[in-house]
């Protein structure tokens, strides 16, 4: 069963464990979304252990066979949100837009006692619900997030609905910084500002990288803080690898407007050899020649 309170050291230990598990996946499979784990491990560990007010998991302890796609005849399948507990007016909701981070979410759920550690063996195994990029049946996922820019709007619509109903719980949405290039993201922020969604928090893993390289070499994104504020959100920045800083940033008061938390991170944190590959870290492949170097990092973790 999941613990209720975590010390800062315990949260950091969970982040370290997530990083190690995903490096292990990369070593076994030859590659995975490792840099996303390196950049977001503290953010996600902090959200699950220090920030989110979630009910006890009602998800299956073990991985499940893929339950089929939703449809008129299939609406009772287990939702990924089951791992965040039953919805309740005072509970928070957690949307994950950056669904390439699925492995990080699965590892975090296991680390906080919401999913069997053995379930991780089914990660990216054909026919199971633990896909590399999942959908709303995948543990920890409220929705189907693979098309960037949509989840933030779905989460904001959820926050809008909950505000109308008088719920006191908040709605969090974890995003990457690359998807801030999507026009829909800014359509959403302006609407969330217009509707004064003070129950809505966007947490951004600002790792400064996207598929084709460093963000600054692809598209003009900065100044993000000024941009969020101009579109009607409060915005704070923190060191995304500092558990206490992430926690503090997420507790920023933001009356009458949504909050954007820019967590500045690096995709090679905790796995130094990755820095040599920067900024081409979207999908990290580890060649046979590189394996010893990464194995040594793993063994030292």
């Amino acid at each position: 069963m999941e613990k209720q309170t975590y010390s800062k050291a315990e949260t950091q230990a969970i982040a370290n464990q997530i990083r190690k598990q995903i490096l292990g996946i990369a070593l076994r499979s030859g590659g995975c979304y490792l840099a996303q784990a390196c950049s977001s491990a503290e953010i996600i560990a902090t959200l699950y252990t220090q920030v989110l007010n979630l009910g006890p998991s009602v998800g299956a302890w073990d991985a499940l066979p893929f339950p089929g796609v939703p449809g008129p005849e299939n609406m009772d399948y287990q939702r990924g949100s089951a791992y965040h507990g039953l919805p309740a007016p005072d509970r928070d909701r957690f949307f994950v837009s950056c669904c390439h981070y699925a492995s990080v979410i699965y590892c975090a759920l296991a680390a906080v006692g919401r999913l069997s550690p053995a379930a991780l063996d089914k990660f990216n195994v054909d026919g199971w619900n633990m896909e590399m990029i999942g959908a709303e049946h995948s543990p920890g996922f409220e929705n189907t997030a693979g098309s960037l820019g949509q989840t933030v709007s779905i989460a904001a619509g959820t926050a809008h609905a909950r505000k109308r109903k008088g719920d006191t719980g908040r709605v969090f949405c974890l995003m990457g910084d690359g998807e801030l290039q999507e026009g829909q993201t800014w359509e959403c922020v302006q609407a969330a500002g217009y509707y004064k969604l003070d129950n809505f928090v966007m947490v951004i893993d600002a790792n400064g990288q996207q598929v084709e390289g460093a963000i600054e070499n692809q598209m003009a994104e900065e100044p993000l803080t000024a941009r969020f504020r101009a579109f009607g959100a409060a915005c704070v920045t923190c060191d995304g690898h500092d558990v206490a800083a992430v926690r503090r940033a997420c507790s920023t008061k933001h009356p009458d407007r949504p909050l954007a938390v820019l967590c500045r991170t690096k995709g090679y944190t905790g796995v130094p050899p990755l820095e040599k590959k920067w900024p081409f870290l979207h999908f990290v492949r580890i060649s046979e020649a590189e394996k010893p170097e990464y194995q040594a990092v793993y063994d030292a973790m």
Partner: peptide, 23 residues
């Protein structure tokens, strides 16, 4: 009556969030 502005993409996904909450 929710005005979502001249921004149909957000309106569509926003509606999904509302629907998930029973609207």
């Amino acid at each position: 009556y929710f005005t979502l502005g001249i921004a149909e993409q957000n309106m569509c996904s926003w509606a999904a969030g509302l629907a998930r909450e029973g609207y």
